[in-house]
Design a protein around this nucleic acid. Sequence first.
RNA 1: GCACCCGUAGCUCAGCUGGAUAGAGCGCUGCCCUCCGAAGGCAGAGGUCUCGCGUUCGAAUCGCGACGGGUGCACCA
Length: 581
Amino acid sequence: MNLFADIKTLVTDSLHSMQATGALPADLDFSNVTVEPPRDAMHGDMATNAAMVLAKPARKKPREIAQTLAEILVADPHVISADVAGPGFLNLRIDPANWRAVVPAVLQKGADFGRSDMGKSRRVNVEYVSANPTGPLHVGHTRGAVFGDALASLLDFAGYDVTREYVINDGGSQINTLARSAYLRYLEAHGQEVSFPDGVYPGDYLVPVGQALKEKFGDTYVDQPEDAWLEEFRNFATDAMMDLIREDLALLGVKMDVFFSEKSLYGTGKIEACLQTLKDKGLIYEGTLEPPKGKKPDDWEPRVQTLFKSSEFGDDADRPVMKSDGSWTYFAPDIAYHHDKILRGFDELIDILGADHGGYVKRMKAAVNALSDGKVPLDIKLCQLVRLFKNGEPFKMSKRAGTFVTLRDVIDLVGPDVTRFVMLTRKNDAPLDFDFSKVLDQSKDNPVFYVQYAFARVNSVMNKARDGGLDVSDTGLQNADLDGLSDDAELGLLKKLGEWPRMLELAAKHHEPHRIAFYLFDLASEFHSLHNLGKTNPEMRFWQPENPDLSQTKIALIRSVAVVLSAGLGILGVTPMQEMR
RNA sequence: GCACCCGUAGCUCAGCUGGAUAGAGCGCUGCCCUCCGAAGGCAGAGGUCUCGCGUUCGAAUCGCGACGGGUGCACCA
């Protein structure tokens, strides 16, 4: 159930009947009509802007339309009052019974309450992390991983058919660097003194790879030229790094459906076929680009290359797909990869990238637009930097990797739940401060704790009531008489619960999982507030041993809060805690 | 120079794609436990939504132009 959607339907039905009686002209677009919570609760339960939106096309005064609409709406049993306010707002008061009905709906559906079919099972591919397989994941990857995973879960909850995908960049030259770095560790494993020049990866994580290479190949490659071992070491090291990355992801609780190898595009004709498709559309040509503006490279000279006409799709310039020596640029296999996703039948594509890839957005959207004839939308979400602190001091070095803080470092220090929640308390395009000391703080200053605590607190009350002999099972609570929920604070909490399905659809529509984190914080806040009323006013306590019926009513409400908290945390990938330790 | 992101309370940030008197948390001031978990709650002070022009019934939100901050601008991946 989604009360806001129900009332919106009621409003549009009423508008149609106004058209039938001639109160409104027949040809009107209702798509801008909204039903939403008013900013100020004093105004009512819901407000609609229908009269103001329609005033101009209908050539009527907004207040006049609102008045007629109000008369129709109050006739409906759901609506207690409909008042015209301000320039033409229509404020609605809903029969509290409608809000109370949220409770049995939550208790019956459990964690599925709020699930939506807005996605209509459309197939969405969410590509995230996709770190180069050259070492362990670091904090930057962590944010992208958490964001992508939560977004995927959110879309799933909203009725999309979601595929979580990781593309392994195993085709580029950084893999050669990895192989050479592994070779040095291999020599080291044979007791040789090695040094690590600039341009190779010095991290300790390659030590075991060197050992494993020794076990596998013995001393076969010890004094051999690069040609002899490069291919072999590339494959071995890439596999080892992907195992490492999979372990990292597992620590975070991230599970991918597909690991796509970029290498699989080479030598299979896929890149060629993709570019031929573009060529057939007249979007590939031989040409010369302008020199780059700003810092001009010293060695720049005009050269003829194979270019993609991305400027026809809003990019600033055309982009090269082939170098002058005839090899592919990075862009070419990436286009082919997105082409592959289109060919696999996805209706929508989403890429999660680091903010440093901002320059890539327009050209990739251009390519997808061209290849799908504008039919498959591509949304690219850029995740800003994470700034790490400890006790207010910047935190930079890792014991493991030496040069950067790894995902494992973060998980070891604060655990996956805290990591995930904190990283989702900011929208993706805002930088995030992550202070190791603050995120572990057990107080209301820490949103993670605050939300978890609300859940634990509900459980605590329920345990107490259960010990007192009350039936607090979900089926038992469904039978509670909810008329006893009449206090403003209780109704406020009911309304907040009623907003959950609506909030969720908006978050899914905008690809913004952070909205869930903020909602959960608000919900927890209203719960704590209500809980506190019982401190001074015993009648407001949830568990009142002398009044089991009323207790059951109140506990049905807070149990619903716990269910929604749990569902929301579940989408974010955070495990709710029964009790705080 | 160009593109993208950002600019909201002293600080860190929300603001539901144009709605009503712009909201939280921290910090500051003052309150509330013989208490279902005070690991909490309530109240107060604090704003020219960076600035200007425009669009309209109505702008923090949309458009244009400044200013300030970040990121990216190679045949790198």
